[in-house]
């Protein structure tokens, strides 16, 4: 564990807390893509199949359980909570996310570290996580307005990705055998998807104005 990875994990956790806070405090999920949240739930369940086979640390197991539980809870609220589900921007959240699932799985069948069920699901989860934010970004683009908590949620998610890149550079320089090419290349792609959002986030922060994305 290095400082960059810890910072990445903490900003990831913070992003989920911000999202839960928004849903809990405002009883609303407006501006949040249910499709992105469903993709994250699939990502965590597929990636953490090793929860039962490899023990790494109490921290690792605890965080995995938190990520699986929180992502399922968010999807449950958006689908079934009587008040929250009413605020869901159904007509704006039309990205065909099943394509992303299919394409990621196909890629995992071709590119993986080992041809085992666990490794293929691991690679699938890495590819899917890289593109899972797309329905959310499309929804924001369509609605134009971004409320503060939603903006912060995406900002922290992007920060988590940026810290993970620093973590990989650090590990590459300090660990003799660190070569996780699948994770690193997908991670860079994933972070690049946030670049546009970050640009507008910083502009609004600098001007002290409300975050607005161009149509």
């Amino acid at each position: 564990m290095n400082i960059f990875r810890l910072a990445g994990d903490m900003t990831h956790l913070l992003s989920i807390l911000v999202l839960l806070l928004k849903i809990y405090a405002t009883k609303s999920c407006s501006g949040i893509s249910r499709k992105t949240q469903e993709l994250y739930a699939i990502v965590f369940v597929a990636r953490y199949l090793d929860l039962f086979t490899d023990f790494i640390s109490v921290y690792n197991t605890f965080m995995k359980v938190v990520f699986i539980a929180s992502s399922l809870a968010i999807v449950w609220c958006m689908r079934f909570h009587p008040m929250v589900r009413r605020s869901y921007d159904r007509e704006l959240d039309t990205f065909r996310h099943y394509f992303l699932v299919g394409a990621s799985f196909a890629l995992a069948l071709i590119l993986h570290e080992k041809f085992t069920v666990q490794e293929i699901f691991w690679a699938f989860s890495i590819y899917l996580e890289a593109v899972a934010i797309l329905p959310q970004l499309v929804l924001l683009q369509r609605s134009g307005n971004v409320d503060n908590l939603t903006g912060q949620y995406i900002f922290f998610l992007g920060a988590y990705r940026a810290f993970y890149i620093l973590n990989w550079i650090y590990r590459y320089l300090t660990e003799p055998h660190f070569t996780r090419w699948i994770a690193c290349v997908s991670g860079v792609v994933q972070t690049a998807l946030y670049a546009d959002f970050f640009y507008y986030y910083f502009i609004s922060w600098k001007n002290n104005s409300k975050l607005k994305l161009p149509a």
Binding site: D50, S57, N60, W122, Y164
Partner: peptide, 10 residues
């Protein structure tokens, strides 16, 4: 031979 360590990142 070198054995791949378990995946320790989240």
């Amino acid at each position: 031979c070198y054995q791949e360590p378990p995946k320790d990142e989240l």
